[in-house]
Amino acid sequence: MPLTPLDIHNKEFGRRLRGYDEDEVNEFLDQVIKDYEALIRENKEMQNQALSLQEKLNHFATIEETLSKTIIVAQEAADDLKSNAKKEAQLILKEAEKNADRIINESLSKSRKVALEVEELKKQASIYRARFRTLVEAQLDLLSHDGWDSLEGGGRLSSEIARES
């Protein structure tokens, strides 16, 4: 068991002839007590400081561990986010390609439909022209026949009758 300042203070030395000077011994013991008390206080302070530093070290070690785990989690989250973004981009691209194909197919279908309508209109126009030509030729034929001459004379007669009345 270590000495305490009280043990030093209460220490009694036996007396002998030609012994030490009691006052000097007591002064020395007082000095030893003061120094010993100072060392004990300093030792306690250092222990408290060491304990405080150990607590800080443990605290920082915990923070370091937490930060390390956080960085790992953040990295995993970033990787997941990146992976999901790539998948979503691929889905968007596929959807866009499908829409583009649909639009192209619809456009081709409409184009074919319009081409068929144009062809139909050309046929109808050709038929109309042929019928119109036939009609015009028939009318020209009528005009070129002699029957008009008799109608023209009858037309004069009706205009003369109209004048006399």
Rank of each mutant, 00 (worst) to 15 (best):
D21H: 10
H145L: 13
Q139A: 13
F13D: 13
L143Y: 10
W148K: 10
Q75M: 03
L29R: 05
N105K: 08
A77F: 06
S109Q: 11
R133V: 07
L121H: 12
Q75N: 14
E64V: 04
S107F: 00
N26K: 11
P2C: 04
E65P: 03
L39Q: 15
E65F: 01
L91F: 06
D80H: 09
P2R: 14
L3A: 06
Q31T: 10
E97V: 06
P2Q: 12
E76Q: 15
E88L: 08
I8N: 01
K122P: 01
Q90T: 09
I33C: 00
E64S: 10
Y36W: 09
D101N: 06
K82R: 07
R131P: 02
D21E: 15
S109A: 09
K122Q: 11
Q47I: 01
T4W: 01
A138T: 14
K69A: 10
F60V: 13
E120A: 14
L53Y: 07
E22G: 01
K44H: 00
H145N: 15
N84F: 10
E117T: 00
L67K: 02
T62E: 15
V118W: 02
L143K: 04
E12C: 01
F132E: 14
V136W: 07
D80C: 02
L29D: 04
P5H: 00
L81C: 11
L3W: 09
I40G: 00
A74P: 01
K123M: 05
S83N: 13
I40F: 03
K110R: 13
S111D: 12
L140F: 05
A115W: 03
G19N: 02
K122H: 08
N10G: 00
E27D: 10
E42R: 00
S111G: 09
D101R: 09
L6I: 07
Q49A: 15
N26M: 07
Q49I: 08
E119S: 11
D149L: 12
N10Q: 09
K69H: 11
G147Y: 04
E76I: 03
V118Y: 10
G19E: 06
A138V: 07
L108T: 12
F13V: 06
L3Y: 09
Q47P: 00
V32G: 03
T4L: 02
L51C: 05
A130L: 13
Q54K: 13
K98W: 06
E55R: 04
L51Q: 15
E117Q: 13
D80G: 04
A89S: 14
R102G: 11
E12V: 13
L51I: 15
